[in-house]
């Protein structure tokens, strides 16, 4: 615990990690209930291409990944509309292309592999001060967007047809949710890496769904699980010299498992 007050890199990791994980957990709740949880996984693959593109051009990889992933999220929506594809097919198309571009650029540039690995597996302990502020700012924007449209998003998620009949325009909110997912995925890849970022979106929210009897409770429990996963995971990583991303994800899974068992016990 003392280490968190002593080391600047740990404080940066903690602040950025908590903000990003809480934003992921809130967004993840809507994604799970819309059966759209794998969009995070797909966009993470696109982000890989974006990171490779940034490293290839010697630009800030987080910024290029953000631009590419947001663009891809818009394209996924358009492809679903225009090509009549189901959501998962449109995501699969872009995630494969993103991954292919990443592999191509890494091969062409020869020396990208080491940098790319840090994005694949996450490197929160090496997070730069500017990245901390970027993460906090964007995570706060994600949370604010969700809260502003809380009622509309909940209505649309619960009963899309009735929500449309009540005058809610779904296109704008769908687009917003997808773009917010793209942003959180890019932020999350610095915390746990491209390969594990879906865990930040899904596990705290899935844990929240185990115990909540109303939506607000589910949001709160998800946020608390996200907070505990990041703080506990970072502490475990520092104390036992473990990879932080794996520690965070495994702790989130443990909490989910504990709440799942608790729910079963409550029922029987």
């Amino acid at each position: 615990m003392e280490a968190f007050f002593t080391y600047g890199f740990l404080q940066r990791a903690l602040f950025a990690g908590i903000f990003v994980a809480v934003a992921c957990s809130m967004l993840g709740l809507f994604l799970i209930l819309r059966r759209d949880a794998m969009i995070g996984h797909g966009l993470a693959h696109v982000a890989f291409g974006g990171v490779a593109f940034g490293l290839f051009l010697n630009m800030m990889p987080l910024a290029t990944a953000l631009g590419v992933t947001v663009l891809a999220s818009w394209a996924v929506i358009k492809l679903k509309e225009k090509a009549g594809l189901h959501g998962d097919s449109a995501i699969a198309v872009f995630s494969s292309v993103g991954m292919a571009i990443g592999i191509l650029l890494a091969t062409l540039a020869h020396n990208l592999n080491v940098d790319l690995l840090s994005f694949l597996f996450g490197d929160i302990l090496a997070i730069e001060p500017i990245e901390v502020w970027l993460s906090i700012g964007l995570a706060a924007a994600v949370v604010a967007s969700i809260l502003i449209n809380y009622h509309q998003l909940m209505f649309l998620t619960f009963d899309r047809e009735a929500a449309r009949a009540a005058g809610i325009r779904p296109q704008g909110l769908d687009f917003q949710l997808t773009v917010l997912t793209a942003i959180t995925v890019v932020l999350g890849m610095k915390v746990v890496g491209i390969l594990l970022v879906t865990a930040l979106l899904v596990m705290p929210a899935a844990a929240g769904l185990q115990l909540a009897s109303n939506f607000k409770q589910a949001l709160w429990i998800s946020a608390v699980v996200a907070f505990l996963s990041v703080t506990g995971g970072l502490a475990a990583a520092f104390a036992f010299d473990l990879p932080a991303s794996a520690a965070i994800v495994l702790l989130a899974f443990s909490i989910f498992g504990a709440l799942f068992l608790l729910r079963r016990r409550k029922r029987f």
Partner: peptide, 30 residues
């Protein structure tokens, strides 16, 4: 409006009765 399949509620959706009714009331609110 009450749609045709309104009672096909997702068993994992954590909405209380109050929240379901409030959805319509606040659907245009910020």
């Amino acid at each position: 409006y009450v749609p045709q399949k309104a009672t096909h509620v997702d068993p994992f959706f954590p909405a209380s009765v109050r929240e379901v009714v409030a959805m319509a009331l606040f659907s245009r609110r910020g």
